[in-house]
Amino acid sequence: MSGVRDTLQRFRARFGPGPRSFLAWWGQALATWLPARWRVLLGLTGDRLLFQRQEDEIEMSWLEGTQRHTLARLPATVTADELRALLGNRLAGVPRWWLVPAGMALRRRLLLPAAAAERLRDVLAFELDRQTPFTANEACFDARVLGVRGDGQLEVELAAVPTVAFTSGLARLGGLADGMAGADVEDAEGGILGLNLLPEAARVARQAPQRGLHLALAAVAVVALVFAAWAVLDNRRAAADAFAAQVDSRADAARHVAAQRQQLVDLVTGTTVLNQTSARRPTALEVMDDVTRRLPDNTYLEKLAIEGDRLTLIGFSPEASGLVARLQGSPLWRNPALSGALQPDPRTRMDRFTLTAELLGKQDPAANPQGDANAAGRD
């Protein structure tokens, strides 16, 4: 208990009155008016109060930089007014965050292009249904950049919680559920990931304790900013035009990449179909070998043609009428037949014939022992 009491006293002393320079006090006051994302980028984020449901109680912790200190365990029925009375009016502006338990969030590590850093959340909204079982409308999610690889790719960690489970878990805080500035995720070692899963529409911005004085100081700062911005207005416009051109070029590049990807998919699909078709058909060498074995030695071929699934033989033979019987029973074709009438050739004293057959797919020779036996007998 003494440790918790000392932590509470140090927490109050940190936010209580003390000798601070005017510039530091003014800078902190102005920082409270900046959007949350700007404060994170500029390193102006202050301490947080973390709340997590533990059985029948709510654990309140203080996040000081990267250090987490347990302050107290509150009853589950505590209200926002009771919490404000416990902390004091001077601490009312400290942002309150829900600490999502480690087992509730689904975490994935991804590799993304360096260009994705500028619009990381938008990119992850498209990737969410591929990396998790949820879509962007079915989950509360956020991500953090872990580092940059040597090839320029970003190592990103994504955390997502189904919206139903997120809403149910937040509701377990009771009266403290409203007024949260964010929802971070606890890792397995009790650390904080540094994310914010709470939808932006539900976030409560931190209010400065002395709002009236801050408004006056902000007005002075705005006047000074107007004079400073007037001098750099043209540069800002040029930067905006350059950014718009960059966005357009990246959009064109993305469309070009999508078209190339579709061409690649079509090419792979066509190659696969062609390979499968070729694998099912006998090769020309196999057909010629089987024809040679089945035709008698006194038969000469003038033409052997394979067109699709059709085999055509044109030649001369003194036994042309019996060639159909010799070609039957082959595992490579079926329905051999004479096409047209036999034409006697007075020069060779043989009959000129035209035979056709329908090619079959490849078969295991062991599956047709009878056809091989017949062919061997005719040879």
Rank of each mutant, 00 (worst) to 15 (best):
N335G: 02
S339C: 02
S339I: 07
R347V: 15
R347Y: 09
P344N: 11
L311P: 00
G308I: 13
N335V: 06
A320F: 10
I314D: 02
P318W: 12
P318H: 10
Q328P: 00
E307K: 14
G315I: 05
A337G: 14
G308F: 09
E307S: 12
I314E: 15
Q343L: 04
A341K: 12
D345G: 03
N335T: 10
D309R: 12
E319D: 14
L311D: 00
S330N: 01
R347G: 04
G340Q: 08
V324L: 06
L323D: 03
N335S: 13
S321V: 14
S321P: 00
P331N: 04
L338H: 13
L313R: 05
G340F: 08
Q343F: 05
A337I: 05
V324M: 09
G340L: 05
L332R: 01
V324D: 07
S339G: 13
R326P: 00
G329D: 02
R310E: 09
L332A: 02
G329A: 14
F316K: 09
L327D: 11
Q328H: 09
G329W: 09
V324E: 09
D309S: 13
T312W: 00
D309E: 13
L342A: 13
W333M: 03
P331M: 02
G329T: 12
I314M: 03
L313F: 04
L342I: 14
D345E: 06
A341Q: 14
L332F: 10
L332Y: 00
R310C: 01
Q328T: 13
F316G: 00
I314H: 01
R310Y: 01
A341S: 15
G322A: 15
P344L: 06
L327V: 11
S330C: 07
R347H: 11
R310L: 11
S321L: 15
G329L: 07
N335I: 12
R310H: 06
R334M: 06
P318C: 15
P318L: 15
I314R: 01
G340W: 08
G315L: 07
F316H: 06
L338F: 09
W333S: 00
S321E: 14
I314A: 04
V324G: 08
R334E: 15
G329M: 05
R347D: 12
R347T: 12
S321T: 12
R347S: 10
P346Q: 14
S321H: 11
P336A: 13
I306G: 01
R326I: 04
A341C: 04
S317A: 12
P344I: 07
V324P: 04
V324Q: 14
E307P: 01
P346D: 15
G329K: 08
S339Q: 11
E319A: 08
L323H: 01
E319G: 15
